[in-house]
Design a protein around this nucleic acid. Structure first.
Length: 280
DNA sequence: TACAATGTTTTAAG
DNA sequence: CCTTAAAACATTGT
């Protein structure tokens, strides 16, 4: 599922655990999601740490913990891959087959609400394309440094985008929109939504876009991200009516603007959905 | 059965 | 060095 809006939704799924302390950790040690992570260190250091904050950057998630007794800051990085999810479960939850990481939380320590009897934060991912990273220390770990400007930040400028399009001038615009070092958080459905809105064929070389097309594209990138964050990202509700989103996965989908059948082609190794009459 | 699935990385080839 | 395509990863659902 996860592109930036879904990632933002899943980030908030763990919010009820804020200010709680990790009582126990369960991991599926052998899972591929730990391929870049010292899971033994995670298990050892996370117990007793308080969940203090979280943030999302594109498709990357960071969960911050503080181990007060050890005077240690803990950095838990998650990537949801293709099928990753975050959720909550009861304090008695037994990790199921695809629950690769479960953090069991204590109730509030000092005079917390009486209802907070502890719960479990669960990271699950059937295909295991997701990734868990873990670090301790006062500095942000390397994998949380040097990230590109978020699409909805003021540092994400049209000039910056155009510079990237020029560097990748021979590559299809669809493939370029999927590059996380320039468009952090865009994925297959959002890229198609953007190109449909901008009236640009997904296979067009990035360097061939006219001045007007680049302007339209820039606005479409920001509009689709902003709107997706405010719908999918807020509570997983669908994007507004009239979006390609509602047509793209059904067989016999039609273009919301032209009423013509949508077409599906492999572009950049991904199934791309586009409207022949609108996008050239 | 065979193929596709909202992702990324590595390998191979041009 | 750069670009592009393909394969790989692991599992489920049609």
């Amino acid at each position: 599922m996860p592109e930036l809006a879904e990632v933002e939704f899943f980030r908030k799924e763990w919010d009820p655990g804020l200010d709680h302390v990790v009582a126990a950790v369960a991991v599926h040690e052998r899972s591929r999601v730990f391929r870049q992570c010292d899971s033994a260190s995670l298990r050892k250091n996370m117990a007793g740490a308080r969940f203090i904050a979280s943030e999302a950057h594109g498709k990357k998630l960071l969960f911050r913990f503080r181990h007060e007794r050890k005077g240690l800051l803990l950095w838990l990085g998650l990537h949801l891959g293709m099928t990753g999810k975050l959720g909550r479960a009861s304090a008695e939850h037994k990790a199921k087959k695809h629950d690769h990481l479960v953090l069991y939380l204590n109730e509030f320590r000092q005079g917390g609400a009486p209802d907070s009897g502890g719960c479990a934060l669960v990271f699950s991912d059937p295909r295991q394309f997701g990734r868990i990273e873990f670090a301790t220390g006062h500095e942000a770990p390397p994998w949380w440094q040097g990230l590109p400007p978020p699409i909805l930040s003021s540092n994400f400028t049209k000039e910056r985008m155009e510079g990237f399009l020029t560097r990748r001038r021979r590559t299809s615009i669809k493939a370029v929109l999927l590059m996380q070092d320039a468009f952090p958080g865009l994925g297959n459905w959002m890229a198609d939504e953007i190109l449909w809105r901008a009236g640009i064929h997904p296979a067009r070389p990035a360097g061939e876009l006219s001045v007007a097309e680049r302007k339209t594209l820039f606005r479409a990138v920001r509009f689709v991200c902003r709107t997706a964050i405010n719908t999918v990202g807020r509570d997983f509700r669908d994007p507004p009516p009239g979006w390609l989103f509602h047509q793209r996965w059904k067989k016999g989908g039609i273009c919301p603007r032209t009423g013509e059948p949508l077409r599906y082609d492999q572009v950049a190794g991904r199934t791309s959905c586009w409207s022949p009459a609108r996008q050239r």
